[in-house]
Amino acid sequence: MNKPSQPRFVRPCTLIWLTLIALTGVTYSIGDAGLGGRNVMLLVLAITLLKGQMIAGFFMGLRKTSLLWRAIMGGYLIIVGGMIAAAYLMGIN
């Protein structure tokens, strides 16, 4: 009996893992530099949602599921991100 070869999702997930590490580094550097303000917030938030989508799609395997599941997770990330952004903008005024 042949041993099945390594599943195909391993390589993309390895790349995702490295990307997530790098993006976390970016977020940390932004914080370390003490940067703030609307544009920085939007950048950090965009990175966060991108990371969330990577974990959901690749690690959790949702990218291979039906539209409904992807929409629930995508909608969640957008709503949470939207709330954070909206509240931040409220605070500026």
């Binding site: 977020t27 940390y28 914080g31 966060t48 974990i55």
Partner: peptide, 13 residues
Amino acid sequence: LVWIILFPLVYVI
């Protein structure tokens, strides 16, 4: 995933 959102929200933004 939760920590991925929590960290920037509370520590960075």
